[in-house]
Amino acid sequence: MFNVNFTGEFVAFFIFSVLIISGAVLMVSFTKVVHMVVSLAAVFIGIAGMFVLLQAEFLAFVQVLIYAGAVSILMIFGIMMTKHQDAEADRSRPLHETLTAIGALALFGILFYAIRQSEFPEPEQPLSQATDNTMEIGKLLFTNYVVPFELVSVLLTVAFIGAIVLAKKEAD
């Protein structure tokens, strides 16, 4: 089952997965909020690398741009605008944490079991490498997915206006 060929893709996957997992674990285990955000940025970049491996170059670009860039920065702004005890865990909740760990591990166990048990047939025809990925997505966006695309633009507008209204000081 683990007889994988040491292809270039596998090596790259291995490197990225190490980056992602270590970033995620560090994010959970760090105590300072800024460190957490930085490790999370590493995770985002790792995922962008995986997108590249999966021949989704445009998505990888978007991932870096939006997640590693915008969202991380947004989070840092959020951190700066609120007050934090640097050292968290002033009150530990051992029962709560244990139960959550058990739950998360059990969920992973079930998922892993399901993944191992499933048969994934080989794709009938691989995704064509020839065409430009970004071009293809652009075409799709403005043909098949034009309505969702426009709706997303509305959603984003509403979200940003809402965010401004919410975050605005009420006193003025």
């Binding site: 709560h96 139960l99 959550t100 058990i102 739950g103 998360a104 969920l107």
Partner: peptide, 11 residues
Amino acid sequence: TYGVVTVLGLI
């Protein structure tokens, strides 16, 4: 807490 209970219930 509700979240934990939900996850455990899901499991």
